[in-house]
Write a protein that binds this DNA or RNA. Structure first.
Length: 348
DNA sequence: AATGCGGGGAT
DNA sequence: ATCCCAGCATT
């Protein structure tokens, strides 16, 4: 960071932001509490997730798992079920493990120090800073994508936000404007970044910091933040066999080493003796952020009771019906096929 | 230091 | 189509 920035006083910016936040804070369900459990859960849910998308999941999660103990004692599959459709499923696995960490290592009391919070599974520097500042008066900026965008514009700083050192770099910048109330400041930066200092078409005319914003005064808002690396989606072909008879069908659970960690799915392969029962095949295209999926779904209607019984007794698949499938978390593109057996059959 | 991981909404 | 969102773990 240049010397001029270090030597100047930008503290009035943080204070202005707090004044704006007092009036313009979004009314969100986790804004009326300092319960570290709820703040922690909301931070995990909203990682890489927009408020509108995750709000229902957050509310359902808190209702089903109202405290650390309830979460720690729950089955992993039930936690995964509550995460259904939200994406980045390692978050659900880690949040469950972290709850058990809190029970075992902290006697069920949420740790109140940044360094301890950081030890929880799935909690990184951002989340630890957020929980610490919001719940325990910690003084650490919770640097996220909003910080990158707001600070890069405020200082017309072209530091590449896709650089690995961006987190440390923008943490330093944040300290230049950091006020006393860091918890409110962190949340204010999120609201400003979401409502005013948006990625596209920011509402600079309404921004409480527009008189302090260098990019705005230079009319170069659109040039910040600088991000060089682009996400590239690769093609991936999958095959699933919807093997069914009399309203029952076969599923299995995925591993935790690829996409859709530990979610349930139809068998990706079948034994040759089921080939005669393939009635139709349908291809579904589905776009993920990192993958362009092409999924072939084979409709395998097993007409022979003998072969069905042989098959389901021999192997490792789970036999379920519509009701049972609703108790398991499925990948989004497979949801249509399990909503109801009749619907799935008709789709195929 | 670089890469993989969902899904949806805005543009 | 492209971007990006209250990031993190793994390599």
């Amino acid at each position: 960071m240049e010397k001029t920035k270090q030597d100047s006083d930008f503290k009035h910016i943080g204070k202005k932001l707090l004044s704006w936040y007092k009036i313009n804070a979004r009314d969100l369900p986790f804004r009326q509490t300092k319960d570290p459990y709820k703040i922690w859960i909301c931070e995990i849910v909203f990682q890489q997730t927009r408020i509108a998308q995750g709000l229902g999941h957050y509310n359902n999660f808190i209702t089903r798992f109202p405290d650390v103990k309830t979460l720690a004692e729950a089955e992993e599959n039930e936690v995964l079920l509550s995460w259904k459709g939200l994406g980045y499923y390692s978050r659900a696995i880690n949040v469950h493990k972290a709850a058990q960490q809190i029970m075992n290592d902290y006697h069920g009391i949420f740790p109140d120090e940044y360094e301890e919070i950081l030890k929880l599974k799935g909690v990184g520097k951002y989340t630890a800073a957020a929980v610490s500042s919001i719940c325990f008066n910690g003084k650490i900026p919770a640097v996220d994508g909003n910080f990158y965008r707001v600070l890069s514009r405020l200082f017309a700083d072209d530091f590449d936000i896709s650089n690995s050192r961006a987190f440390n770099y923008f943490s330093q910048l944040a300290h230049l404007i950091l006020p006393e109330n860091v918890g409110d400041f962190n949340q204010a930066m999120m609201d400003l970044g979401s409502e005013i200092c948006k990625p596209k078409n920011p509402l600079c005319g309404e921004c409480p910091l527009n008189q302090d914003c260098l990019a705005f005064s230079l009319e170069k808002i659109s040039e910040f933040p600088v991000k060089t690396k682009k996400v590239k989606a690769e093609d991936l072909e999958l095959k699933y066999y919807f093997v069914h008879r009399n309203g029952q069908f076969l599923i299995q659970q995925r591993k935790d080493d690829f996409i859709w960690k530990k979610l349930f799915e139809f068998p990706p392969v079948i034994s040759d003796d089921l080939n005669p029962f393939i009635k139709s095949v349908k291809t579904v295209n589905h776009k993920l952020t990192h993958k362009n999926l092409s999924i072939e779904i084979f409709n395998v209607e097993v007409d022979s009771e003998e072969i069905w019984n042989n098959f389901i007794y021999e192997n490792k698949y789970i036999v379920t019906d519509v009701d049972g499938s609703h108790e398991r978390s499925f990948p989004k593109p497979l949801e249509n096929y399990i909503q109801s057996y009749d619907t799935a059959y008709r789709i195929l």
